[in-house]
Structures are given as C-alpha cells and as structure tokens.
Write a protein that binds this DNA or RNA. Structure first.
Lengths: 237, 237
DNA sequence: AATAAAAAATGGTTAAACCATTTAACAATA
DNA sequence: TATTGTTAAATGGTTTAACCATTTTTTATT
C-alpha cells in the first residue's frame, strides 16, 4: 500500500515554485523589475513576510537581485551560474545508456590512471572494500560504489571521483534490480576481483580488459532490464 | 580603477551561511533538533522573521525538516541529494589540470562518437560555428566553446555535452588569458579546422589526432601560464 | 496502567511599524 | 540651459506582537 503525502505545501514554497516556473517559462525575463514587496504581497494575497521568505530563497538560488531602495530584479544569469544548474539537470534527466556511456569512457581511463598513481595505501583500501563485498550475501549498491570509487580516488583527481559518484548514484536503482540474484552477484564479485588483482599487479592493460568485461555485463543487464520493462508495457496494451 | 563592493551582506544570508558551515563542519549532525524558532532567534540576537527567512532557504536546499508543532531537525541527506551538491562543489574547486585531464579523456572519445553519429545537419552546424571563429579577430571563449560543444552535441549524449560545457566554463578564464595573443589565436583556429575536416571526412583516427594536438597545446599554454604565475609569486617574496 | 482531556510548545502566517538606502521630483544656482 | 543641492517618496531590511493549526507534553480520570 502506498498513500501519497497529505502534508500541505507551505505557502512560501508555493510562491517559490510560482516564480521559478515563471522564470523558466520566460514570463519573467532577466532584467525585469518586480513590483514592490508591499504591492506584490497584496496582489498575491499573502503577507509580506511570506513573500520575503520566498524572495530570500530565490535570491539565494541566484534568480533575483534586491537592493534596498532600488527594487527587485530578475537576475541576468551568468553563463557559469547556468552551467552548474544545467549539469545537475542533465544528470537528473540523463538516460541510463547515456550515463553508462560516459562511465565506460571515464572508468576505462580511471583504471589506467589508478595503476599509475595508486599508492600502497590506496591498494590496501581497495582490497578492504573488496573483501567486504565478498562477505556480503546480497547486493548492496553502497559496497559496489565504494569499490569503484576507491579506484577513482586513486587517480588523485577529485572531480573524477565525484563525477563517478554522481554517475553511479543515478544508475543505482537499475543496478540494484539487475543484481538482485545470487548468480549475478557472484559474477560481479569475481569481476571486481579481477580488476583489483590487475591494478595490484600494476597491469593497466589487464585492468582495462577486466573492467571492460565488467561494464559489458552491466550494460547487458541494463539492456535486458529495458527489454523486460518494454514487454511489460506491451502486455499492458 | 576598481573598487570592491561595499554592499553589506544581508542578515539572513549570514545566518544561512552560519548554519551551512555548522552542518559542513559536523557541529550540526543529521537528526539533531534545533531549538525552537523563538528561542533560537533570541539566542542569535535576530528577529524571528529573519531566522525564518534563513530556515526557509535551508529547507529549500534540503538541509532541514520542519513540522508545525514538531520542531526543526537537521535532515538526513540522502546519498543522491548529497552527490549533486558534492559534484557542484567538486567542479567549483577542481584544479585546471583535473578539469583538463577529464576533458582530454572525454573529448577524445567525443570526436570518435561524433564521427560515427553526426548527421549532415550536425556537420553543417559545426562548419557554421567554425566559420564564425575564423572571422573573429580576437579570442571569444563563447565561440571556442560553441565549436567544442557542437561536436559534443553530435554524440547525441546530452549529458556529455552538458558536462563538457561545465568543464569548459571553468577553464574559461585561463584559456581566455592564454589565447590573448594573435599567434595562439591563429593556431587555435587552424587546430579547430583540422578537427573539423577530419570529422567531416568521417575519419575518427585523424580527428582524434587533431584533437589531441589541440588539447596538447591547450595544456602547454595552461602549464606555462602557471609557471608565469609562480614566477610572479616568487617575485613578490 | 491505560485512556482521555487539557495545556504548553512549535512551526505557519499575518499585520504594523521603523530604519537605511535609493530614487525621483523639484528648487537653487551658475 | 545645465548642473548641483535639497527634499520627499518609495523600497528593501528588520523588528515586534499577535493569532492559528498541529503536535507534544502534562495532567486528570478511570
């Protein structure tokens, strides 16, 4: 059973969304001046305090500019402010295959860099995590991610690790589904071990090969999962 | 002449930062209950309205939970909520070389995918942008980015294009500096043209080679820029 | 000990006032 | 006429006090 939340949205949250929508839709364009808080609150039928809560949030998000005595203006979003938001948005709406494609590209290089740059401590950390994985008797995405991230961290490129983390997080639900059987779980652990061994042996070529095999299986599982979903969709119609 | 802004930070903005810092530092941990708004505002020496403006923003950012009659609690950040923030943060604080490293990895593959997947319209678009670049007589990062992004878009992987955009945006200031001379500008245009021609000829290998040459020069310029900066720093001491 | 009722506390909201800064209008001056 | 100085109005920033609805705690009742 699943009941939808009955919690009423706070007034100021509604106001925030209202403004954000208007900005997204272009009803409010950069440079536009908003009515004064006193006018606006009356027009919207809310108190000035509530309106100000919303405006504060919008300001904090970078949507508006306010100047005492001056007024409130829709902000000219600079290119850079935009890209961060756009990236987050793109991440949210990326398809599994887009995510996987980038992961394949990056992680292939990541293992190569890891072989080069990993310290003995890094290797030890990886092994510790791998051991945890091997002792688990059901798939835990955190464990899976931890392993891949320990490799990414060994590249000493913090951005790389963080991007991998975001990427993994976004395919978590599907990998959790596809690994929800003992066979695939065991396979995964073996694949991890192969990667680990190759990195430990400082054999980049072997590590890449092991990783590609692993990612190939992940991709197969995802694509298979898609087909099954489609079949279900078809069955509905 | 350049004067620094004298605008005083708004009170609620200060409060927001204060809470964010405390959460980052761990002084406020998930699950912690905050004092009531009435108490807290008195403790902090601010009005309840100001405190509420800050709390509304923090709630909107996902830091806290509030329940009428219940109280205000530091929110248990889910993994996924966190990764988005962490990624943005990592992007902001990434070094030029980290950014460039990832760009080199991705873009190398991007040109390969572009050769595969670019439609005739994509190619046309690239050429149009390249032409604009060639007519420019001073470096315009927007033009530069537009060219690289048109290639990234041809991969039909939206996330790829957006990540590249974020990446480029973050090295914009340094590339703008390093291209601030006619020779390098001309070189850049030539390098772009080589990449363009190879993609148009559907020659992945050639395209990659041209791109690598381009990125090699970008890297050289960045590293040189660093050395100069260091020299300046040394001169100061 | 369990239940029910009442009281207190809490976040949500409104209203009215005052401050500091900015803007606009207008007068004064050269 | 054009510039400067003054004044008044408007605006965002802030504070205070009050009331509501819900939740929590306390108290009373059985």
């Amino acid at each position: 059973m699943h009941f939808k939340s009955l919690k009423s949205e706070k007034l100021s949250e509604k106001v925030i969304k209202e403004f954000e929508e208007m900005i997204e839709k272009g009803a409010l364009k950069p440079g536009d001046k908003l009515p004064s808080e006193r006018d606006l609150s009356q027009q919207m039928g809310i108190s000035r305090g509530i309106l100000r809560e919303a405006l504060r949030t919008l300001e904090s998000k970078g949507y508006i500019n306010r100047k005492p005595g001056g007024g409130t203006y829709i902000r000219e979003l600079t290119y850079s402010q935009n890209t961060g938001q756009k990236l987050i948005n793109a991440l949210k709406h990326a398809t599994y295959l887009d995510l996987l494609e980038i992961r394949e590209i990056l992680e292939q290089k990541i293992v190569e860099l890891a072989v080069e740059r990993a310290t003995d401590e890094d290797i030890l950390e990886m092994e510790k995590i791998l051991e945890h994985c091997q002792n688990a008797n059901e798939y835990d995405p955190k464990m899976d991610h931890a392993f891949h991230l320990s490799i990414a961290s060994a590249t000493k490129n913090a951005l790389m690790a963080n991007f991998m983390a975001a990427n993994l997080e976004l395919i978590k639900d599907i990998t959790t589904r596809t690994h929800n059987n003992p066979n695939r779980l065991k396979e995964m652990i073996n694949e991890h071990k192969k990667i680990m061994d190759a990195i430990k042996a400082r054999n980049a070529e072997k590590a890449q090969k092991a990783l590609l095999e692993h990612l190939h299986n992940v991709r197969k599982a995802i694509e298979k999962s898609f087909e099954e979903t489609e079949e279900k969709e078809d069955a509905k119609n």
